[in-house]
Amino acid sequence: MLIVAQAGRLEYEAVIFTASLRQFSPDWQGRLLIAEPQPEAAWEGHHTRIAPETRALLEEMGAEILPFTARHFGATYPHGNKIEALFALPAREPFLFFDTDTLITGPLDRIAFDFGRPSASMRREGTWPDPPLYGPGYDDIWKSLYDRFGLDFAGSLDPDQPDGHWERYLYFNAGWFFGADPAEFGRRFLNWAIALRDEPGEVMACQSLDPWLDQVILPLVIHSFGGGRPGPELAGLDGAVSCHYRNLSLLYAREPDEVLDALETATAPNRIKRRLREWVPAHRLIYQGKGRKKIRPMFDQTALPTKERPIRQRLKNRGWWLV
């Protein structure tokens, strides 16, 4: 299992992730590898190393910290860490990647992964592409990518969705994904991401790739390895087993009560609390109780906005968007 952490917010989220994994999935027997970008190459001039206190706590909980050098993305596109970190993993061994802002809430060992058929998170919105009024449309944009990389476009479509609807096209949130070989998966992910970044082409000229580049390329890579949309055997992810909360303020605003309980249980031990109290969002929302007292009452859990943007905006307007 792979997550990425570096100095600042991500190292504190890595503590939450690791603590929740140990609390709620104690029978999971895999290795937890935390990839740490080094302050060189594409991260040169930036403080990226995890603080010694955090490092000691993560290792005490059984995590292994793996340094890696980001050569292609780094500070100019931090989302690229998840691509380049794959090369720090042992080749030819199945891998499972999680975004660090994820909470494990149930027994991960009971998820029936088929690593020969890669997949990824469907907890996403129609954030990309954004077709202009006079074209090209969804079909033209996505087909241009499949054609570019020699892939079967028709085989990626969801026939239950109408033409021109964003859910018809294979599109994931990169909050979790898995595959059979991180070296092969990573090589294809990296090469195609660089190719699209450096030469987007005419059809893509009207589309933003920042911050969407990783989520644009991920479905192509998964499709190329014979994978696709997750089946019912993976339902626990983004469900009873994991929660990609993205931001602690968002967690308190919109996640089920069970997720709040899991967060506060996993972070209650004194050794966890001593470190997380150094991070303002955790200190205020978890340990001072402001998440439940201030944020939770702002939102009717039976009538939440269907999009994330208005939730974020309300939190920002009330001064509760903490990062």
Rank of each mutant, 00 (worst) to 15 (best):
Leu86Tyr: 07
Gln38Cys: 07
Phe87Leu: 09
Pro37Trp: 11
Gly291Val: 08
Ala70Ile: 09
Phe185His: 00
Thr306Asp: 12
His223Pro: 05
Ala70Lys: 00
Ala174His: 02
Arg92Lys: 15
Arg284Thr: 15
Phe189Leu: 08
Asn191Gln: 12
Ala14Pro: 13
Arg123Asp: 13
Ile286Val: 15
Ala56His: 03
Asp109Gln: 13
Arg318Gln: 14
His72Asp: 08
Trp166Thr: 14
Gly228Glu: 09
Glu278Ala: 15
Phe68Asn: 05
Leu58Ser: 06
Gly236Tyr: 07
Ile34Lys: 01
Gly135Thr: 11
Leu66Arg: 10
Ile104Pro: 02
Arg31Gln: 14
Arg318Met: 11
Arg318Cys: 03
Leu260Cys: 05
Arg22Trp: 01
Pro26Phe: 11
Tyr171Phe: 02
Arg254Thr: 03
Phe178Ser: 02
Leu96Pro: 05
Leu250Lys: 14
Glu278Tyr: 12
Asp198Pro: 00
Gln288Met: 15
Thr48Cys: 06
Gly80Gln: 03
Arg312Cys: 01
Pro37Ala: 09
Asp99Val: 13
Phe68Gln: 11
Ala205Pro: 14
Ala262Tyr: 00
Thr18Ser: 14
Gln6Leu: 13
Phe225Trp: 00
Arg314Val: 04
Ser156Lys: 08
Leu322Trp: 07
Asp152Tyr: 02
Phe115Asn: 12
Met61Pro: 01
Leu190Glu: 03
Leu145Lys: 10
Leu209His: 04
Met61Val: 01
Tyr245Glu: 03
Arg31His: 12
Tyr287Phe: 15
Gln313Pro: 07
Ser144Asp: 12
Ala266Pro: 02
Gly239Met: 11
Leu151Ala: 07
Arg246Val: 11
Leu209Phe: 14
Leu251Cys: 09
Lys143Asn: 14
Met1Gly: 07
Met122Asp: 08
Asp114His: 05
Ala195Pro: 02
Leu57Glu: 08
Phe178Tyr: 07
Phe172Cys: 01
Arg197Asn: 08
Leu322Tyr: 01
Leu86Glu: 00
Trp320Gly: 11
Trp320His: 06
Tyr245Ile: 03
Tyr245Leu: 02
Ser156Gly: 13
Leu10Asp: 04
Ala41Pro: 01
Glu60Arg: 13
Asp181Gln: 15
Leu304Pro: 06
Asp139Val: 08
Pro232Ser: 11
Arg110Thr: 13
Ala262Val: 14
Glu84Ala: 11
